[in-house]
Write a protein that binds this DNA or RNA. Structure first.
Lengths: 153, 153
DNA sequence: GTTCCTGCAAAAGCTTTGCAGAAGA
DNA sequence: TCTTCTGCAAAGCTTTTGCAGGAAC
């Protein structure tokens, strides 16, 4: 299943890729990578900043943006535009979709194969990237809502 | 096929919806609606502004944003987040996907039924919105590129 | 020494907000 | 008259840029 890959495997594969591209494994880059692999799910640049700020107070947003751009450039990370005017970053580059809960804000991975979709209509087109996302309310939030309703009303 | 609906039908249905919601059919609102129905395909707020500026120079971006928000709120228009930090608006609210050409910038409609996707994995979730988009290079741009290559090299 | 990395400050985009005047019912 | 609409100016937020100092090789 998507997302169950242990952090170390993804993390170490990523560092290998960085080396291969002659990109230095600086401490700050590795911290950002760590965030993406382990601590945070589909974080925004700001979430990474907040998350790392306690540990590395001098880490700047510029460096986070620089690192993210580098990672995207070499294909280690992909961007998600589920929300308007806010870019999220996903370390899982394998084909999959997303569900964004409009109540709790969490982004869920959805196991779905996109490569076969719209093959006919887009024949003759060169497709680089496929994105599928859903918006709504996740199961947990729906249950909570119903629970609250029972209590309140 | 999606997108072939004559403007007048979509436009008049939209004005009816506005009336039904007690939203005034002001000249400026109708101009924005006209842009969405007829002149522009998946425009950004700025593209609408530029397009209408010659005709209605005093029309402000605030009003364009206000109108777009109103239209989204009553479900007449949906937002597209294909590009980072730029919202596009789509008058076609029926189930379909998009292809964004990274060369010419055009957004194509893709006839695809999304409602049946990921039903199993998202059972128990309340889904409001489905979005599928592709990025790459469209057929025309690919042909142009090849043509240029033949000429230049 | 040369290249790459990093942070600061400033700027750039896009979008929202508050408010006062204008338009419409 | 009362409500809704509109535009301006200002602010907010995310992201980018220029540059100078620092670190790594």
């Amino acid at each position: 299943m998507i997302g169950c890959d242990p952090m170390n495997s993804r993390y170490s594969r990523a560092t290998q890729q960085l080396k291969k591209h002659n990109i230095r494994l600086s401490n700050r880059r590795l911290k950002v990578l760590e965030c993406l692999c382990n601590k945070l799910d589909h974080p925004t640049a700001d979430q990474i900043f907040v998350n790392l700020h306690k540990e590395v107070p001098s880490l700047s947003k510029t460096t986070i943006y620089n690192t993210l751009h580098t990672l995207v450039e070499i294909g280690l990370v992909r961007t998600l535009n589920i929300e308007a005017n806010k870019t999220r970053y996903d370390i899982i580059t394998e084909d999959h979709g997303h569900f964004g809960c409009q109540t709790c804000g969490r982004i869920f991975n959805v196991n779905i194969e996109l490569e076969s979709l719209a093959k006919g209509e887009l024949s003759g087109f060169n497709i680089w990237e496929r994105n599928l996302y859903f918006k709504g309310i996740c199961q947990k939030c729906l249950l909570n809502k119903n629970k609250n309703r029972e209590v309140v009303y």
